[in-house]
Amino acid sequence: MEFFGEVAAWFADPANWNGPDGIPARIGEHLVLSIVPLAAAVAVALPVGAWIGHTGRFSNLVINIANVGRAIPSLAILALAAMLLQRTIVDIGLRDSASEIVTMIALFFLAIPPILTNAYVGINEVDDQIVEAGRGMGMRDLEILRRVEIPVGLPVILVGVRTAAVQVVATATLGAVVATGGLGRYIIDGIAQRRFDEVFAGALIVAALSIATELGFSFIERRATSPGLRGRDTAPRELAQAGRPGGI
């Protein structure tokens, strides 16, 4: 109980709300650290996943790669990224941002599997009949993808993006291990200095940010999904007057 009092006091301390170590600044860093790799992963994995889902080609290969990628611990991805790329980043003159770039690259790879898999599954699961109808009506491949497969598969596709986003926001914390800013600093520095109120407060903020991300993306999903695809309102209703069976 005393501990929770300390955590509350930590939050109440104005010093923790100001300056480069303050909560707003750390949240800002954390968001930059998260949004950049997420956006990059969406830009790469969405089109690739969608195209694979559309054509059905290379699907096994890519899904297996994604599954293996998912099985590698985030920390290992971060260590690998540092080991393989940090030197190059320094050499091309980005030394001051090397930690951030390494972390973003690791988060980028972390975000790829769910986005790729769901984009593939979302498109692939679109009813063949609908696709056939589109083709029979004279849609080109890209028109089928853009006007039919993507909007119909959108709920599944967006779940992939949401999963990736939550994962990235939660995992961006690890960047503190390689000297980035962000909310991970509270946790890593707190542990190093045995300030467990700060550790707990940092974890709380990360959790809150993850939940906010989850809710935000759920909201976007609802807004972006056609009402025709929602689970509710799907019971067929007889609207025409010609509803009575053929007899009296």
Binding site: D127, Q129, I130, E132, A133, G134, R135, G136, M137, G138, R147, V148, P151, V152, L154, S226, G228, L229
Partner: peptide
């Protein structure tokens, strides 16, 4: 195809 009407078995209306 844009000049030929096409109706398939399950109708294939676009649900979205």
């Amino acid at each position: 195809r844009r000049r030929i009407g096409y109706v398939i078995q399950q109708i294939g209306l676009f649900p979205h």
